[in-house]
Amino acid sequence: MTDPTDNNVKVPDGYRKGPVLLRRGQVPVTTTDQNLLARGAPADWVHTDPWRVMRIQSEFVEGFGALAEVGPAVSVFGSARTQRHDPDYHLGREVGRRLVEAGFAVMTGGGPGVMEAANRGASEAGGLSIGLGIELPFEQGMNAWVDLGINFRYFFARKTMFVKYAQGFIVLPGGFGTFDELFESITLVQTQKVTEFPIVLVGSEYWSGLLAWLRGPVLDKGTVSERDLDLIQVVDDPADAVLAVQRDALTRAADEAAAASDPS
C-alpha cells in the first residue's frame, strides 16, 4: 500500500462540502445542489443535523434581534403549576409590578402559573412584559400578559437569552425547570461566565430545605465552598427581592463609570 505521508505521493484534495473535507469512501455520489433541485426527493433532509444547526442559528438570530434593545431586564422564574388563588401567584404579580416601577423589563418563560403572574404584574404596571416560551410535548402556550414573546425549540438557545439580556434572576417556588435555571445561573456566576449577577430566592420557607442541604452535607463534603453559597440571597418580601437587583445594578453602574474615568 502506498503511504500517503510519503513526500513523493500527492494526496488528493478530496471533496469539499463547505468547510468539511471528505475523502475516499466519505465522498458523496450526489451533490447538494442535486439533492436540492431533485423533484420528488424525500423530505427527511429537513430533520438532519446540518439543518438543525440552521434552526439553532435562526433561534439565536431571532432572539438577539428581538431582545437587543429591551433595556435593563430581570428574569423571573417559578412554577407553571401555580394556581391563580395561590399566594405564590400574588407574590409573582407583586414582583413583576415592583420590577417595572424600579425601571426593569420582566422576562419569564411565558407560560402559566408564576410566569403568568410576573408578566401580569409587569403589564399592569405599564412596563415591558417578555415571554420566552419553549416547544414542549404538552403545549403550554404564551400567557395573555406577554407583550413581547419568542418561542424556542431548543432549551439552550432560550437559556442564553435569559442570561444575556437580564441583570439578575428572581426565583420563586418552582419545580425541576425552576431548579434547572437556578443551578445553571449559580454555575455561570461561580465559573465567572457571567459577573455581577444577583440571584435572589423568594420564599424562605420553601427554599430552606434546599439551602440546609447545601450548607450541610454538600458543604461538609467539600463539593461547594462557602463563597459559592454566598452567591444566593433569600428574601420573603418582593420589595427586598427588587432592592437586591437594584443595588447590584447601581454598584455595577458605579464601577463602569469609575473604569471609564480612569486615565490609566
Rank of each mutant, 00 (worst) to 15 (best):
D3S: 06
D6Q: 11
D6I: 03
K10D: 11
K17P: 00
Q26I: 02
P28M: 09
P28R: 12
P28G: 06
V29D: 13
Q34A: 07
N35R: 15
L36S: 10
L36D: 15
L36F: 10
L37T: 15
L37Q: 15
R39V: 02
R39E: 09
G40K: 13
A41L: 10
P42W: 04
P42Y: 04
V46A: 15
V46Y: 14
H47Q: 14
D49Q: 01
R52G: 05
R55G: 03
R55E: 14
Q57P: 00
S58Q: 13
E62G: 04
G63T: 02
G65K: 12
V74S: 08
S75C: 06
G78Q: 13
S79D: 10
P87Y: 10
D88E: 11
L91H: 14
L91I: 06
G92I: 03
G92Y: 05
G92C: 04
E94N: 11
G96R: 03
R97V: 02
R98N: 14
R98G: 09
R98T: 12
E101M: 13
E101I: 05
A102H: 08
A102S: 09
G103K: 12
V106N: 09
T108Y: 08
T108F: 06
G111H: 06
A118S: 08
E124T: 00
E124P: 00
E124N: 00
A125M: 04
G126K: 12
G127Y: 06
G127A: 08
G127E: 11
S129E: 04
S129Q: 04
I130V: 14
I130F: 09
L132S: 03
E135G: 01
L136P: 01
P137N: 06
Q140S: 00
N143D: 10
V146W: 13
L148V: 06
L148G: 03
R158F: 01
T160Q: 14
M161I: 01
K164S: 03
K164C: 02
K164L: 02
K164E: 09
F169M: 13
F169I: 05
G175C: 12
F176P: 00
G177P: 03
E181V: 01
S185T: 12
S185E: 08
T187V: 04
V189Y: 06
V194Y: 09
T195S: 15
V200A: 09
L201Q: 09
G209T: 12
L211Q: 11
L214S: 11
L214M: 15
R215L: 08
G216T: 07
G216A: 10
P217V: 00
P217F: 01
L219M: 10
L219Y: 10
G222T: 03
T223K: 08
R227E: 14
L229E: 13
Q233N: 04
V235N: 03
D237H: 07
A241F: 04
V242A: 04
L243P: 01
Q246P: 00
Q246F: 03
Q246D: 11
A249D: 11
D255R: 11
A257M: 10
A260G: 02
A260M: 07
S261I: 09
S264K: 14
